[in-house]
């Protein structure tokens, strides 16, 4: 124990000056991280909604492909999927114009599966009575969906959806392996040049944390808004 303590390289543990000097570069890289996360989550939500609808469809030819897709995406690591997209697809003549595009496509397609399950369970958790009372009031399927079911399902889906969003933000770091110049990639570059790995990776981790705190704050505000009708006048 004492030996281990003696061997710690204190001078390499954290260099605040290097962290401070690297901050502009890392924040630029963090912009890429945020950009990829936002765009990916946007597409993952849209695709997730369609997948959820397909999964709940009465038609087997919609239900089964959606089911298989969701199972595959949830059952394979994002990193493997990114490798397939970026290094595998060129074999059949499909090449992305940039690693960022490949990253966005990969993350969107992968997390759409998780969103689909959250959306499906949220839609299904709205009570049958809501559908029936809307039907008794002569509302059609889409009117009921838009005005009655989706607003209630959104409240239920918010916390798990934001969990997914946080995973997306952190998942963007995997795009560094296909040379996307995002936050981890930036930290890795400086660490390689300065040999101050600990400083750079801790700084990158802190930036990820701050991004997630901001998202968490946004989630709280949204939840408050959607929960306003629960036991309040």
């Amino acid at each position: 124990m004492i030996e281990w303590f003696k061997n710690i390289q204190w001078e390499h543990l954290y260099d605040p000056q290097l962290a401070w000097d690297s901050l502009p570069f890392l924040l630029d890289a963090a912009k890429i991280t945020i950009f990829i996360a936002l765009i990916s989550m946007f597409f993952a939500l849209i695709l997730g909604l369609f997948l959820a609808m397909a999964r709940m469809s009465n038609f087997w030819f919609l239900r089964w492909p959606a089911r298989i897709y969701i199972s595959f995406m949830r059952g394979t690591p994002l990193l493997v999927f990114l490798f397939i997209l970026y290094y595998g697809l060129p074999v059949i003549g499909i090449q992305f114009d940039s690693p960022i595009t490949a990253g966005i496509v990969g993350i969107s397609l992968n997390f759409a599966a998780y969103n689909a399950e959250v959306i499906r369970s949220a839609l299904m958790s709205v009570s049958r009575g809501q559908w029936e009372s809307a039907a008794a009031l002569q509302m059609g399927y889409w009117q009921t969906m838009r005005r009655i079911i989706i607003p209630q399902a959104t409240r239920i889906a918010l916390p798990p959806t934001f969990n997914i969003f946080l995973d997306v933000v952190k998942g963007t770091s995997l795009a560094s392996v296909i040379t996307v110049h995002e936050l981890l990639y930036g930290a890795h570059l400086i660490a390689g040049r300065t040999y101050e790995s600990m400083t750079m990776y801790i700084t990158a981790a802190l930036i990820y944390w701050v991004i997630c705190i901001i998202i968490g704050h946004f989630q709280e505000r949204l939840e408050k808004r959607y929960n306003r009708y629960l036991n309040k006048t």
């Binding site: 008794a136 002569q138 209630q152």
Partner: peptide, 18 residues
């Protein structure tokens, strides 16, 4: 359905609306 209105045992008001 236009001709009838239904009142349910469990009310089924829309909870997100006043």
């Amino acid at each position: 359905r236009k001709y009838s209105g239904m009142v349910f045992q469990g009310f089924h008001l829309f909870p997100h609306k006043t």
